[in-house]
């Protein structure tokens, strides 16, 4: 891709089935506009997301990864997102230590009622990654 062209990020989004995926649905049926940069993977719970999934996505061509789940206290499985939060905290700090650009990997809580918030999160993450440019550090190619 020439540097002059506007860079359109490819973002893999792991969305929990019960909240964020439904939030994305709501954004869709409410016809809220957001950038077409995300590729959604539906997971049962944010607790299902192993850091390995995130790194694997970055290795295989994603420019960024978004993980989104239920707000703390709202997990369908009661505590999945709390445990996930600890795991993501360690991943977040470790990636920073290893010099993977902060912002490549984002985490958010979006409920099923927050269609507008979902769109806002995607806009924000897309802008962040657009500023960082293509993912060259982790990419296998």
């Amino acid at each position: 891709m020439s540097e002059m062209q506007e860079f359109e990020p490819r973002i893999v989004a792991f969305l929990c089935n019960w909240c964020s995926y439904a939030g994305a649905d709501l954004a869709g049926i409410s016809r809220i506009q957001y950038p077409p940069s995300i590729r959604v993977i539906r997971v049962p719970c944010s607790g299902r997301v192993d850091p390995l999934f995130i790194l694997k996505a970055l290795q295989n061509g994603a420019d960024g990864v978004l993980v989104s789940g239920c707000h703390p206290g709202d997990c369908h499985y009661l505590t999945g997102n709390y445990v996930a939060r600890r795991r993501f905290a360690v991943l977040h700090d470790l990636l920073e230590f290893c010099g993977i650009e902060p912002g490549r990997v984002s985490f958010s809580w979006v409920s099923a009622a927050e269609g507008e918030r979902f769109a806002e999160v995607v806009r924000e993450v897309t802008e962040r990654i657009r500023k960082l440019g293509p993912n060259r550090r982790m990419n296998a190619e």
Binding site: P72, G73, Y82, R85, A89, H92, F107, S108, V125
Partner: peptide, 9 residues
């Protein structure tokens, strides 16, 4: 429940 979550959007 009160784990820090400053890294979450």
């Amino acid at each position: 429940p009160d784990d820090r979550q400053e890294f979450i959007i």
